[in-house]
């Protein structure tokens, strides 16, 4: 057994149009814990059950969207090997020095063909989840503050050359395809879900007219009951909801899509199934995208394929 190589999504840096308004949103409504600010005035957050220093960073900018999405790898030898593998595959990389992000080691940064900046890193400070590593309680007070996801789980990114980005993740970084949406020709992939673990997806791509686009960053919550609690909190706080609460056919997750204060879509979701690399992929012909997206309503929400930041 081993989840090694690329372990999991580790951080997303998101651009916001009004830093303090969104810092308040991520802290009080989404219920992430603010863990620090740096000299560039970036604000760092972690979900309560994450043990590494941070998973979400927001930055004041004049346009919304995603700066980069990072994955933690098992160790520095793996980081060096994956960088060499990327270079051999024809992907240019650069090194971002340790400490450029708070409490984070050196990062390997590269741009995939859909125009997204992806990072790999091996080291980030273990600050714990507020519970002891010996005889821990099941949850801390932070677990009931706001929506309070347990972790930043994955992202769905949009761009033109889906095939190129998919190939790098599968052929170089060791991801496998769990599910796909295919066009009328039965071949062209409209969207792909890729896993480096037992999750149904650690990253996903959707074919989109503009490169480098963020569809959503997703946060894991434990139960469908808590998805409904999240829906209550969104409405109480006037969060614009896009889709849900409902269940995706794709990945079977119970979900809500909504937007932060700057129009960056996020998801709160629960459930799904355990995936393994030997399992046959699941295919959703495009005419079944409505139930793939929203199994309860079988509705093709027009915003799903059109609204990005």
């Amino acid at each position: 057994m081993g989840i090694n190589g690329v372990l999991r999504p580790g951080h997303a840096q998101i651009r916001v149009l009004n830093l303090e308004e969104d810092a308040k949103f991520y802290r009080e409504v989404l219920g992430l814990e603010e863990v620090g600010r740096d000299a560039q005035d970036r604000v760092y957050f972690k979900a309560w059950d994450e043990r590494d220093h941070h998973s979400v960073i927001i930055r004041q900018a004049d346009k919304a969207g995603l700066d980069f999405f990072g994955f933690k790898v098992s160790d520095n030898a793996t980081l060096n090997k994956l960088e060499a593998d990327l270079n051999a595959y024809g992907v240019k990389t650069e090194r971002v020095p340790a400490g450029e992000l708070l409490a984070t080691g050196e990062r390997v940064r590269f741009t995939v063909p859909t125009g997204h900046v992806i990072e790999l890193y091996a080291e980030k400070k273990d600050v714990g989840n507020g519970l002891s590593y010996s005889n821990p309680a099941p949850w801390p007070a932070q677990a009931e503050k706001g929506i309070a996801p347990t972790r930043m789980d994955h992202a769905l990114l949009g761009g033109g050359d889906l095939d190129g980005s998919r190939d790098i993740f599968i052929n170089v970084l060791g991801f496998y395809l769990t599910e796909e949406v295919v066009a009328e020709d039965g071949k062209t992939q409209i969207a792909v879900w890729l896993s480096c673990s037992n999750k149904t997806h650690d990253i996903a791509f959707v074919r989109a007219p503009e490169d480098g686009k963020l569809h959503h960053v997703s946060y894991w919550i434990d139960t469908w009951e808590k998805v409904l609690r999240a829906a209550d909190l969104m409405s109480m706080n006037h969060v614009p909801v896009d889709i849900g609460p409902t269940r995706h056919g794709i990945t079977r997750g119970a979900t809500i899509y909504a937007f932060d204060r700057s129009g960056n879509r996020f998801e709160t979701f629960a459930g799904g199934y355990i995936s393994y690399p030997d399992m046959h992929k699941l295919t959703w012909p495009i005419e079944h995208l409505p139930e793939g997206l929203d199994y309860a309503q079988r509705k093709l929400h027009e915003t799903f394929l059109t609204v990005f930041s």
């Binding site: 149009l17 919304a64 614009p240 937007f259 700057s262 129009g263 960056n264 059109t306 990005f308 930041s309």
Partner: peptide, 9 residues
């Protein structure tokens, strides 16, 4: 769309 000034629709 996003209702937050980020998406342009």
């Amino acid at each position: 769309g996003c209702r937050g000034g980020g998406c342009s629709v």
